[in-house]
């Protein structure tokens, strides 16, 4: 019997990328494939992005960036990494021609020390209000000046930030702070070609957030931000369909072979539905490796396939519905799925 399966529609992914690329042009698009491509499967997704002409890939960490290079993502595709730990092996990463998103002087110095053959590609990060990574406005001139002084080892490629998307007004403030930081860097002698601030929602909605490059994760997978905004209202298509087999059937209940050990939140009880043969059923229990749905008198058969969420075209629940009903965002649901769930790729 087949186990739980996440079917990944790579053609939907490519169509999303094409629509987003058209929308954000002339800014370039970075395809973000962190967290195993949002649970969709790193290598097939990254290869699809490259085949679709994407010239930037964002991996978050160095290890994932190296994995892409080792698996043939070509050197003319920039691979951007930005979660940098205190003990990174930058030598290998520089050899693999990864790009680094740098927030602190100590990161910059460590990269410069490791950069013995050729120059390391660096994007300096300014904190524009999110207060996670990024140099403070006070530390910014020092970081820029030092990277320019290290120009025999450091190629200053970009300046970037992350914004909170709390409100349009807050984002406007962040964009203004970003422009100021760029102006400060230019006065100090920097000439950067790649300025990037926006992720999916801002890139989609605000032309003034796009600069030279936008970083697109969620929207490329057809994951919308919620709050009434559906993928179709953005002309995006959900990429993942999650299915599980009916492994037991008795007294109006059907048991599916997927559970919280596979990443289904236990809070799905009483909140979400699944679809079997076009009809919807409530989840009444979630256990380690199984969940139970109330099927009433419906003629469910052992071996039927339940759709937990999908594109919605066959009346099945969508990821957006799950997210809304679970009080979270689609990103959490897909990244939480266990890597042990089989990924099946449709070209």
């Amino acid at each position: 019997m087949n186990g739980p399966t996440a079917t990944i529609d790579l053609s939907a992914y490519r169509r999303n990328l094409a629509r987003l690329a058209e929308r954000v042009a002339p800014a370039a698009l970075m395809a973000v494939v962190k967290a195993d491509a949002y649970g969709h499967g790193l290598l097939p997704v990254a290869r699809a992005a490259v085949a679709a002409g994407v010239a930037w890939i964002g991996t978050l960490d160095i290890e994932t960036g190296l994995e892409l290079r080792e698996n043939g993502i070509p050197r003319d595709v920039a691979v951007f990494t930005w979660l940098l730990g205190p003990n990174e092996d930058y030598g290998r990463a520089i050899e693999a021609e990864l790009d680094f998103g740098v927030s602190t002087l100590s990161q910059l110095e460590a990269i410069a020390r490791a950069s013995v053959s050729g120059r390391a590609r660096v994007h300096l990060k300014i904190d524009t209000g999110l207060h996670r990574n990024g140099a403070s406005i006070e530390d910014w001139p020092g970081l820029v000046t030092r990277s320019l002084a290290l120009s025999d080892r450091i190629e200053l490629v970009g300046i970037w930030t992350h914004i909170a998307e709390a409100s349009d007004g807050d984002d406007t403030v962040a964009i203004e702070r970003f422009r100021s930081a760029i102006a400060v860097a230019e006065r100090l002698g920097a000439s950067v070609t790649v300025r990037h601030l926006a992720a999916s929602a801002a890139a989609f909605g605000r032309a003034d957030s796009r600069f030279d490059l936008v970083r697109i994760g969620a929207f490329s997978y057809g994951i919308s931000p919620g709050g009434g905004v559906s993928p179709s209202s953005l002309r995006l298509e959900p990429v993942m369909t999650l299915t599980a087999p009916v492994i037991a059937k008795e007294e109006g209940l059907a048991t599916l072979g997927i559970g919280y050990g596979d990443g289904i939140p236990s809070s799905a009880v009483g909140t979400v539905q699944v679809s079997i043969d076009g009809a919807r059923f409530e989840v009444v229990s979630v256990q380690l490796d199984r969940l139970t749905v109330d099927t009433g008198d419906s003629p469910i058969q052992l071996g039927d396939t339940a759709v937990l969420f999908g594109s919605g075209t066959a009346a099945e629940p969508t990821l957006q519905e799950w997210a809304d009903q679970l009080g979270t965002i689609g990103e959490e649901i897909v990244t939480r799925l266990s890597p042990r769930i089989r990924r099946r790729f449709l070209e």
Partner: peptide, 30 residues
């Protein structure tokens, strides 16, 4: 000043923060 997406938390006085490298994709519930 506020922290992280949506600015759901705002400091009531000057305070020190630590950014830790773990999130919901690692299993730490949102």
């Amino acid at each position: 000043e506020s922290v992280s997406y949506g600015y759901t938390w705002t400091a009531i006085s000057r305070t020190n923060l630590a950014l830790v490298g773990i999130g919901y994709a690692d299993g730490l519930d949102r």
